[in-house]
Design a binder for these strands. Structure first.
Lengths: 209, 209
DNA sequence: AGCTTGACACGAACAGTGTTCGTAGATAGA
DNA sequence: TCTATCTACGAACACTGTTCGTGTCAAGCT
């Protein structure tokens, strides 16, 4: 069963979550689809196992009240990188119940950091929820864009330059702000947008004390 | 073609986005699946049309610099309620390219409000992106929970009391903070969590001036 | 009026998906 | 060695989105 989860993660890492079908996974394991149901009750169950394995890889720091911002940001970056390493898997993470032991371990770690930073318990709980939700959504969107540019015959690639031109070519009387700030709308190398939003939320949480 | 979009939205409103299949939609229209492709090139295209129609319903206020926080919050609440009115449709919204005219209209309106509030252009652009992403993710999660509690033979319902008990019954030595603050983790009537996170982000954006 | 042309609609089929069932094989116990 | 149990798997079912070829029906032209 460990082998099933391992090969499933391998498929997701190389071909994306969309390609993780029971038949594809069975094919890699040189067997038929029905055999998988001896080790896994469901595909939803397989998804939970994948997320669990993924969460188990995360390293949670010992809470340090002086560095709680960097610590909580570091955990979110770890989650982000894990999600992006297995493109599309964040979709499974969004759909999962907060019951799994490994995800509870992550929640416990994040909660410990926020509380050590002096954030009020209610704010800490809600901020953690918001952070997890945002990270998953960010990675889901990123993997959707990546997948769309991968297939689609590379016609609708829509890289940043193309997007910038489209924004700038809009009728200025109907879209004055979009045309004027097309550069800002399409700005952001790497994870600048991610860093910005995380700073937004963490700074906001630090005010609930 | 208008009629196709209307009936599709009706199906989503009553049975959820998962139930919106080409065959189901064709069945409601008393025809076969192939006939839909005379009006719609794709299911992705249908999704875009639905989101466009949904965005067209939103009313965007004239920017008032003195009330920009309430205004931007109001727009987000409108989007949230539209998404929740058509459960699961936020998934289509997440997957959509920011090219559609109606979504651009919404972006223009939100950007106008933020800029009128004095938020720096770069921060306004990124904050708008973060807000839209969070609202979509929040509604997607909500509809997933709702769908799970709808089917599943009502066994895994996991209402708040059940979740609270599960958190409280965890081993305290492994999960000290979760067991101690189980109440806060499961707190939140209605959209308290939503309001909290929106305030987090808007307050954070207001500091970029 | 008769004929042709064109556009539209649709039944059937194809390649996929997750999942289940009955059976065949292997393995362990007496 | 015989039996019993349990695992593994081929085939099938009910779905999904999508396409192809055919039919039907109306309008336009001679």
């Amino acid at each position: 069963m460990e082998q099933v989860v391992d090969t499933a993660l391998g498929v997701v890492a190389t071909e994306g979550y969309e390609a993780l079908t029971m038949r594809r996974l069975a094919g890699v394991l040189d067997t038929g689809p029905a055999s998988l149901y001896a080790h896994v009750v469901n595909k939803a169950d397989l998804d939970e196992l994948l997320i669990g394995r993924l969460c188990a890889e995360l390293v949670l720091p010992e809470p340090d009240p002086a560095a709680w911002r960097e610590q909580i940001r570091g955990v979110c970056v770890q989650i982000r990188d894990q999600y992006l390493k297995y493109p599309g898997i964040s979709r499974a993470a969004l759909a999962m119940a907060p019951t799994d032991l490994e995800t509870l371990r992550v929640s416990e770690g994040m909660l410990a950091i926020l509380l050590a930073g002096g954030v009020a318990p209610q704010a800490a709980a809600w901020a953690m929820d918001a952070l997890l939700l945002y990270v998953a959504a960010y990675c889901l969107e990123a993997s959707i864009v990546r997948q769309r540019s991968a297939q689609e015959d590379a016609v609708w690639v829509l890289d940043r330059d193309e997007l910038l031109r489209r924004f700038a070519d809009l009728p200025p009387e109907a879209f004055p702000h979009i045309t004027r700030h097309a550069a800002e709308l399409t700005a952001g190398e790497g994870h600048d947008r991610f860093d910005f939003t995380l700073a937004l939320m963490i700074d906001g949480a630090s005010r609930h004390r």
